[in-house]
Design a protein around this nucleic acid. Sequence first.
DNA 1: TATTGTTATACTCTATAACTATA
DNA 2: TATAGTTATAGAGTATAACAATA
Lengths: 153, 153
Amino acid sequence: MAESDDDGAAVEELLGTRLGYLLKHTQLRLAEHAGPALAPFGLDARELAVLAVLAAGRPLSQLEAARRLGVDRTTMVALVDALEGKGLVERRRSEEDRRRNVVELTEGGRRVRADAEDAREAAEREFLAPLGAKDAARLMQALRVLTRTPNRP
Amino acid sequence: MAESDDDGAAVEELLGTRLGYLLKHTQLRLAEHAGPALAPFGLDARELAVLAVLAAGRPLSQLEAARRLGVDRTTMVALVDALEGKGLVERRRSEEDRRRNVVELTEGGRRVRADAEDAREAAEREFLAPLGAKDAARLMQALRVLTRTPNRP
DNA sequence: TATTGTTATACTCTATAACTATA
DNA sequence: TATAGTTATAGAGTATAACAATA
């Protein structure tokens, strides 16, 4: 994972102008950084995002949670399976609509979510530190704009 | 791929603070945008990046090209297979070191690379347009910093 | 012994199709 | 008929292990 070769400068000039390349490798770097931060909690970033969505407001069905995260329902089945296996969430049949599984955090799930979120935030702050606070905030805002602009389904 | 559900605002507030989520979904959006732009050339973004690296300087072996792109050599085998199948590159045994395959662009490969790069640049410019020129430049620079900072192998 | 290319293999992430139970 | 959850399956993308040719 790097141009440990010879003329890395020319390569950076070449690839550093490609948005796709930069996004991909920034993501890889972040994963290297945040992964170890979350490992003590037995979670990865996607699972934590599920916990965060479930903890946010009213109880959600699997499908609602999937839509919020932008994954499809078959992916959510596996995510909830994993989280339930760890004792962090519980499924129960909705009584208003018995097709739906309402997914709720357990006591332990609430605790793990809170602690893991702290760890994630710290890891992201550390990862963004080379930018300085102002540029880091600008980066986040720019990404928010780009994820909201064109085709909303 | 969206919170077409109900309270999308709360979700955006929640997920819009997660760098990993923003990077991932920005990348997905970019792919939706750039994919169609490259399709007429019969390429995807990764293949174009290979062509760009090969066109940049002196002829490279597969391993050198792989290192520059941050993929491993087994991945590069498949990439070169695909590009060679399209007649865009040619392999030849290096005469100084007969273990090496030197990969070079064909005439057609040079033409396709140039045109596809123009299309890619136009697509990225369009994608970044909502930011304005200044913030777009800031975003690119921030990502460059983040991909170069911590652990260089 | 080490390196380059290659193949085979496996693992992750994701999506599609089809089934079930409910509505 | 349509929806929610599930399963099976398949397709990318990537990485590891092992092999042949070469150094």
